[in-house]
Computed example of a mutant assay.
Amino acid sequence: MTISQSRTEFAGLPVVDFDPAVPAPTPAGAAAWRLSLDYDSTAEEFAGLVESFLAAVDPAQVAALVVGQWGEEYETPAPIELLAGLAPRLTGLRALFLGEMTFDECEISWIMQGDVTPLLSAYPGLEILWVRGATELALRPVRHAALREFAIEAGGLPAAVVRAVGGCDLPALEWLELWLGTDDYGGDAGVDDLAEILAGGRLPALRRLGLRNAQIADEVAAALATAPVVARLDVLDLSLGTLSDAGAAALLAGQPLGHLRRLVLDHHYIGAELAARLVAELPDVAVYLADREEAEDGRRYVAVSE
């Protein structure tokens, strides 16, 4: 599986591509504006595109931005400093997707990010932050009172970033999604690095937890079997990873999961018997078990890596 489709909706708003040659087709606050360049563009051209956008709309009314290709994104860090510096003008910004690219624009493991902490510091009212790509990605533990939704999509998520997420104080966060990925692409996190997240002490409002695309899906499932955070969740998502019978059995043998609304395990390696038990033993839970995979020469693969 690859990410082959651009988002058409973000933060409850339709995604609209900004074209400096065309008048803005909708009010500034009625769209998630996609700012993106062609493959052979430069970071300087992206800065010019941003200025053209701010001149074409009322910046204070912009609620959501989707940042795609910013120019040589496989070797040029994300425009974090540029975006953070716009905070005095983008006073209404509530949602940001940084690095929303398909595989034919830039492979997920090639997307060059950076330290995203300045975005959280610059926008204390930000409610939704999605990041795609983890090369050079960094985060420092911060307190952010408004963030409700935080997702990092990666072919491999560094352990330091996972620990930093766990170290953040996010009292309003309802949805946390981390694509842990594989060690082939920098995903070196283990279950110990998830300890603060699984404890949930800094995430009192969390209702949806996704630990997706994980090479260590079985180990994650075993840790979730006793994790305090699980008791308050509505949705637990372990999809896109390598979950096998061992992980499924750990979930069934662990703490009760009957309070969940959804247990999402799509793209998995669970056998028919364990899959049937999950459905039968969780009759009031919507259990998603699509896309069963077969191990190849004893190896199991996550859905999104390169």
Rank of each mutant, 00 (worst) to 15 (best):
D237Y: 05
A246E: 14
D245C: 13
R277I: 04
V191R: 02
H268Y: 05
P204N: 07
L198I: 02
P256Q: 10
A217P: 06
D183F: 04
L180Q: 05
V191E: 11
A227E: 02
S239Q: 10
R261Q: 12
G258D: 15
D266T: 13
A227Y: 00
R208Y: 04
H259I: 13
T182L: 04
R208M: 03
G186E: 11
P256S: 12
A205M: 04
R277Y: 01
L265H: 11
A250S: 14
D237K: 15
G181N: 07
G247Y: 00
G271F: 00
A249Q: 15
A227N: 08
L243T: 09
S244K: 10
L206S: 02
L180C: 12
A231P: 12
I216Y: 04
A272N: 03
H268D: 08
L236W: 00
V191G: 11
I216H: 02
G258A: 15
Q215I: 04
I216N: 14
L180W: 01
A217Q: 06
P204Y: 12
D188I: 07
R232G: 14
L252R: 13
A221W: 05
G200T: 02
L203C: 02
L238R: 09
Q255G: 13
A246G: 08
A275Y: 00
D188P: 07
D192N: 13
L251W: 01
A223Q: 12
Y269G: 03
A275E: 03
W179N: 09
A225Y: 12
T242F: 06
R261D: 06
A250H: 13
E273Y: 02
L236D: 00
V230W: 06
L263W: 02
D218R: 12
L236M: 10
P228N: 15
V264H: 09
A275V: 05
G186W: 11
E219W: 10
G187I: 05
R277C: 08
D193N: 12
D237Q: 12
